[in-house]
Design a protein around this nucleic acid. Structure first.
Lengths: 111, 111
DNA sequence: CAGTATCCTGGGGGATACTG
DNA sequence: CAGTATCCCCCAGGATACTG
């Protein structure tokens, strides 16, 4: 990382728009290792409501950060997975996770 | 980056709490190279209102991500700068900026 | 210069119930 | 299973004016 700030136009406003939702980072987190079905995500993040989970998934999908595959089964099977944009975010997710975990431990915050 | 997801407890909820505000990433961005005064930040981010800039600065300060130094001059001089927590975030800010800049260019989004 | 002090609004997020 | 459909509420964020 030898980049200097001014080599970039600041695009962090876009970043916030794309992944700044209250649950989006966590949703992405749970898709890192494998694609997941709707209910699996819901179980991984119990505090999110179904409605909001659906909304955030739709937004991530329309941003092409995740993709949604529907299998014509009964009952329906839907799988969410990372796209290339999502995958290029994985190292950053890991870094953010490390960062806040360190922050939490140094400030006696329970996660 | 050879870490596996499950080595971490997911702390991305904390991440959102700490730096998920609408303008926080941009504020931090403009503090990367040098400390800045209130009005300099306001000029760098014209779309933010004074009230909100103050609020987000206070939150970042109480999270110990930035620090605020007041010099007893007339008129007052106040300087905001990165703390160690802020500085440990710089590589991530750069990565996020690169990520969204690439995203923007591939999707014809003007920044 | 670096803020307060007010007032206000929208929409992000939540709770609950229903369904192809 | 994977969602809609409603209804609702709060507060993050904004607009404007004033000040030590």
């Amino acid at each position: 990382m030898e980049k200097i700030k001014n080599q970039y136009i600041c695009s962090l406003g876009l970043t916030i728009d794309l992944i700044g939702g209250k649950w989006k980072l966590m949703i992405l987190w749970y898709l890192i290792e494998e694609s997941k079905r709707f209910t699996e995500l819901k179980k991984s993040i119990p505090d999110i409501s179904q409605k909001v989970l659906t909304e955030q998934l739709r937004e991530l999908e329309s941003s092409k950060i995740i993709s949604r595959k529907v299998y014509a089964t009964v009952p329906p099977t839907v799988e969410y997975s990372m796209t290339k944009y999502g995958e290029s975010l994985i190292p950053i997710l890991n870094d953010l996770c490390e960062w806040s975990k360190k922050y939490a431990s140094e400030n006696n915050i329970k996660i």
